[in-house]
């Protein structure tokens, strides 16, 4: 049962129109601002222009430039300003134009925002929205998936939704969270997915994975745009009689270890698929988590499928070679099933 169905079972009713992943985020922002006047938006070109991807389009008309704040080109400056506003009782939602540019505000995120609560106990309720991910022929500086950098920082929460429903639900949780949350929205998914969203307010809890497909032979642990390649691989292998379970972790930190371990205990074999590149990142953390929590249940080595340790290339054949593809996943699963 998909998460949408699970939530529907709780009595939500659904909008007539379908919403894209991008529209889901826009709706979440608008509804949060309507509900809570302390929610503000900060970022470059987010006002009249509506943001680099048009996620904030229309917000300035409804909420004015006092709450939808265009900034000069200064990631460190406006992320730091968001920290100050959060300490003074607002709930800022920052947009960086691309997740790649988070590095320009790195210090404010990892040394300021992340390290306040541990020392002072003061909440820092802020969200940084970061369009991430490859597949759009955007080259080394507009394609990165840097969730591993931030998941490594104690004090930050890191989410990476894969569906419109989750994007909106996790955004609402992120905005209400008293901690800094880095919200990775996969820009390849922005306009490629559509689903009907609930009319009512709903939230997806941070730190909760979702089993997207039940299976018995092997678990694929993944998130973000890779979810769809994993589901396609699972579908193809099903015709060969291989039953693949697909777990979407949805939150990178805190990781839903229980859900991951439960799936691995059930299948005994696991393939990890990430868009974060191979070494020292999310896939390694997932492998270590499984080793610590389900070693005795494993019937084969933990398989990792992730991009190579290179910058992300521009040219289509290079980028396609960089990104994990369905065939690579089916091959990995088949090999592991035969182990």
């Amino acid at each position: 049962m998909s998460i949408t169905e699970q939530e529907a079972a709780k009595g939500l009713t659904f909008q007539n129109e379908e919403s894209t992943y991008l529209q889901a985020i826009s709706q979440g922002l608008g509804e949060a601002m309507r509900e809570d006047e302390t929610v503000i938006q900060i970022g470059e070109d987010i006002g009249e222009f509506g943001g680099a991807f048009k996620v904030t389009k229309g917000l300035i008309d409804e909420f004015g430039e006092e709450r939808v704040i265009d900034t000069p080109l200064s990631e460190s400056g406006f992320i730091g300003a968001a920290v100050g506003a959060a300490l003074m009782g607002l709930r800022p939602v920052v947009e960086v134009q691309y997740a790649d540019f988070l590095s320009c505000g790195w210090d404010q995120i990892v040394n300021v925002a992340a390290k306040i609560h541990y020392r002072t106990g003061d909440p820092v309720p802020m969200v940084i929205r970061a369009p991430s991910g490859a597949g759009l022929r955007a080259g080394p500086f507009h394609s990165q998936s840097p969730e591993g950098w931030f998941a490594h920082v104690p004090g930050l929460k890191v989410v990476a939704p894969a569906t419109p429903f989750d994007a909106k639900g996790l955004l609402r949780s992120a905005i209400e969270d008293p901690n800094p949350v880095i919200f990775f929205e996969h820009k390849y998914l922005y306009r490629r997915l559509k689903e009907r969203l609930p009319r009512e307010k709903y939230k997806i809890d941070i730190g909760r994975a979702s089993v997207r497909r039940d299976g018995t032979d092997v678990s694929v642990i993944t998130y973000g745009a890779m979810l769809y390649k994993a589901l396609e691989a699972a579908k193809q292998l099903n015709t060969n009689g291989i039953s693949v379970e697909v777990v979407d972790i949805r939150t990178i930190n805190p990781l839903d270890k229980a859900a991951i371990i439960a799936s691995v205990k059930k299948t005994g074999k696991v393939v990890i698929v990430t868009e974060d590149h191979y070494s020292f990142g999310v896939s390694a953390e997932l492998a270590a988590t499984i080793n610590e929590g389900a070693f005795e249940y494993l019937d084969g080595p933990i398989e990792r499928i992730a991009p190579p340790d290179t910058p992300i290339p521009y040219s289509p054949p290079l980028e396609d070679a960089y990104l994990p593809q369905v065939e690579e996943i089916t091959t990995g699963i088949t090999k592991l099933v035969a182990y």
């Binding site: 406006f78 992320i79 730091g80 300003a81 920290v83 506003a85 300490l87 003074m88 009782g89 607002l90």
Partner: peptide, 12 residues
């Protein structure tokens, strides 16, 4: 680092 933070407090 608290220069931007102070500006953010003032923004609030």
């Amino acid at each position: 680092d608290f220069y931007p933070v102070a500006a953010g407090a003032a923004l609030a």
